[in-house]
Design a protein around this nucleic acid. Structure first.
Lengths: 126, 126
DNA sequence: CCGAATCCCACGGGATACTG
DNA sequence: CAGTATCCCGTGGGATTCGG
């Protein structure tokens, strides 16, 4: 068994109270975890991501991609063609983070039925 | 190697495009991942959580605790004493989710140095 | 000590139109 | 196709106060 303090290790020694803080600052943003996750199986073009992540708006997708790029989580490649062609790929750092996200997805898949009923109730009973 | 589609499995068969969606609905909220994480090593009283999670406000902490309780992630116990004593503990579902969060913390801890410098730049360069 | 009740607002995010 | 540029808004979240 690992306790939080064991897992965090450096509590109070840095700018972060816990390693989780650092992670949360990177993936805070409605679609960032999904972006990282979908890029796991290879580089994707902008339009592919847009299609994969249903519900995201143009502006926000671009913005979160830029954030992740600035945070060195992914690499943007512009092929300077016409019509434009650009793709986004995980940088090494981003890959490791994406791997850390996988368990979240697995959890969601495993408990999808329960979650569906729970969230359904939540939506009907304010 | 696991691809996103392999990991998600049930893409398009439910209300969620991907298992990750379900998870994100539960942990969306600035402090929810931290709450779940800190409860991993046992039940905590309200004031303990408040102290552990530095920066959270009273209202929001209560709010997110209630959300997680309504989502069956944790159990609130009121000991009906005076002065009041209440604690929060992980429900089985919450424990499994908290376990899925551990890798995020580990990642943050492992890359804390890089993150500190990256985020420092991000704050100085708008 | 735990939490309910207010007030308030920045800001993350959505919709739309336009450009190279 | 891959963005940029605006406008706009809901709400998540912060500060403070009060109550049992």
């Amino acid at each position: 068994m690992t306790t939080p303090s064991e897992t965090c290790g450096t509590v109070g020694t840095g700018d972060f109270s816990c390693g989780l803080d650092a992670t949360l600052r990177i993936i805070s943003g409605k679609w960032k975890p999904l972006i990282l996750f979908f890029l796991r199986d290879g580089p994707k073009r902008y339009s592919e991501l847009k299609r994969l992540i249903s519900g995201v708006s143009n502006k926000v997708l671009i913005q979160q991609l830029k954030d992740l790029e600035a945070d060195l989580m992914l690499v943007r490649t512009d092929y300077k063609e016409v019509p434009p062609r650009v793709d986004y790929a995980l940088a090494p750092l981003g890959r490791s983070l994406a791997d850390a996200i996988v368990p979240l997805c697995t959890w969601g898949t495993d408990h999808m039925a329960e979650m569906a009923s729970i969230l359904a109730k939540r939506d009907t009973l304010p």
